[in-house]
Design a protein around this nucleic acid. Structure first.
Lengths: 232, 232
DNA sequence: CAGTCATATTGCGCAAAATCAAACTTCGGA
DNA sequence: TCCGAAGTTTGATTTTGCGCAATATGACTG
C-alpha cells in the first residue's frame, strides 16, 4: 500500500493537536479503503471491529426495519470519524453505514481505540464533540418528525444537505452526491411519490432544479420559507 | 443539610467500582434537591453548570419549539445520571428537563466533571454507556416516527413506559408517574385527541384502564400485537 | 360549597399524504 | 443500438389523523 501523506490528518479536528511524529504513527497503523457508491461499510448489530475516518465522500447511517424499509438516520461528511461504537460503550455498530457516493476512508482495528483515547491529546475530546453533534442532529430529526409536515421536513432536509455537502454551481447549489427521490423519502419518513410531487411543484416555481439522481437548489431562501417554524 | 448515606450510591453503575472512601468524598461534594411534579430542572440552551444523579422519580427531557409545541425526547428512570452535557463537549444543556413526578436528585457543580472522569475508576466508561443507550433510544424513536402509524407508536410508547417505570397493581401494570393524554401525544408526535380516542377504544376492548393522569395496562400482549413490526 | 381550571371525551368535516396503478425517461450494458 | 433496469412522474382513490367545537368530568381554591 502506498504510504499515506501526513497532510491528510493534520487539519482534522481529532488530530489537529498532534505533532508530525504522532500523526506518522497513526497513519502507519491505518488501512485505507475505497467504497463504491451504494457499497455497505458495515451492518447494524455487527461486531464493531474497526473505526473509520472518512477522507473523501459522504456516508449515511441507516436502519433497516424487519419489513425492509430504510430509515436514514444521518449523513456523515468528509473529515469525520464514524463507526466509533466504543466511544459509547457498545461492542456492536448501532447502525448500518453505506457509501452515498464513492468514498475513501481510513480504518483502524478497534483494539487500538483505548490507545488513541489515552495517548493522543485532544482525540477523546474531539470525538465526544462529534458524538454530541450527532446527538443534536438526532434530536432535531425527532422534533421535525414530530411536529412538521412532510413538505416542511423535505425542505429542511434539502437545506441541511446543501449546507453540509453543497457544491456551488452556476445557478445554485448542488448536493454533491447522487440522491434519489427514494433516498430523500427515507430521510424524511415519507414516500418517493410524495417527494417527487414536491420536487416537481418546486421545480415549476423555479426553487429547485433536478435531474435523475441530482438536485440543485436555486432559491434556498424560498425553501427556508417553506420549511416551517425554526426549531427553537 | 443532612448527611447523605453511602448506600445511595454504591449500587449504581457509575459508582459501583468505588470504595467507601471515594463514595464519601463524592457525597460530600453533592447537593440533594427535591423537585415537585412538573417542575423544571433546567432549560435547553442554558449554561450547563451542574450535572445530576436521579435518586428517585422520573424526569423527562423535552424540546419546546418556537410555536410552543412540546416534544418529549426521552424519560430518565431513577439511578441514572442526567445533565451530562460535558460528556459530549457541550457547554449548554441540549434539552429541557422536568420532573415527571416528585423527584429527588443529587447534583454537583460541572467544574467537578473532569475530576470525576479522571479520578474515579469506571465513572467515564459507565457514563458513556449511558450516552450510548440514549443514542439507541433516540434512534428507535426516529425509526418509529418514520415508519409506524400513530396507533402503533402510542402502543409502543405505552409498552416502553410500563417496561421502564411500570409498577405492578391488581389487574395490570401501572405507569408510576402521572401522565396525561397530552403528555402521551408529546411523546408520539400526535394530538391529545387522537390519543384519547385510542385509549377509549382500547379501554372498551379491555386492553387498558385509565383514570385521570393514570394509565394501567391490563393486556400487554394485545398492545404488542398492535405495536406493529418489531424494529429490526 | 360554589366557582374555576385543567383534563378528558366525542362527533364531524376536511386536508394531507399514503396507496394503487400506470406510463414515461434515462442510463448503462449486451 | 436496442433492451432492460432503475428512477421518475402523474392521476385516481382511499385512508389517516388533524382541527374545530361542544360537552363532560374531576380536582383544587378560596
Amino acid at each position: 500500500m502506498a504510504k499515506l501523506d501526513e497532510s491528510l490528518l493534520n487539519r482534522l479536528p481529532p488530530f489537529s493537536l498532534l505533532d508530525r511524529k504522532q500523526i506518522r504513527e497513526i497513519l502507519d497503523l491505518a488501512t485505507s479503503q475505497r467504497f463504491a457508491e451504494g457499497a455497505t461499510v458495515y451492518h447494524e448489530e455487527e461486531e464493531a471491529t474497526r473505526f473509520y475516518l472518512l477522507l473523501d465522500g459522504t456516508v449515511r447511517a441507516l436502519h433497516i426495519t424487519s419489513e425492509g424499509e430504510h430509515v436514514t438516520a444521518l449523513h456523515v461528511p468528509a473529515g469525520q470519524l464514524f463507526g466509533i461504537a466504543r466511544a459509547f460503550g457498545r461492542s456492536t455498530y448501532p447502525a448500518t453505514v453505506e457509501a452515498a457516493a464513492e468514498v475513501i476512508a481510513l480504518w483502524w482495528p478497534m483494539d487500538l481505540w483505548p490507545q488513541f483515547v489515552t495517548r493522543y491529546e485532544g482525540f477523546a475530546t474531539e470525538t465526544y464533540r462529534t458524538v454530541g453533534q450527532r446527538l443534536g442532529e438526532m434530536q432535531t430529526r425527532i422534533v421535525e418528525l414530530s411536529v412538521l409536515h412532510v413538505e416542511q421536513r423535505v425542505a429542511n432536509t434539502l437545506l441541511r444537505l446543501i449546507d453540509q455537502t453543497g457544491r456551488q454551481a452556476e445557478g445554485g447549489t448542488v448536493i454533491d452526491f447522487p440522491i434519489t427521490r427514494q433516498d430523500l423519502s427515507d430521510m424524511t419518513g415519507t414516500t418517493l411519490h410524495t417527494v417527487s410531487r414536491l420536487l416537481s411543484a418546486w421545480e415549476r416555481q423555479g426553487i429547485v432544479e433536478s435531474r435523475r439522481k441530482q438536485i440543485m437548489v436555486r432559491q434556498p431562501n424560498r425553501l427556508t420559507a417553506l420549511s416551517g417554524p425554526r426549531p427553537a
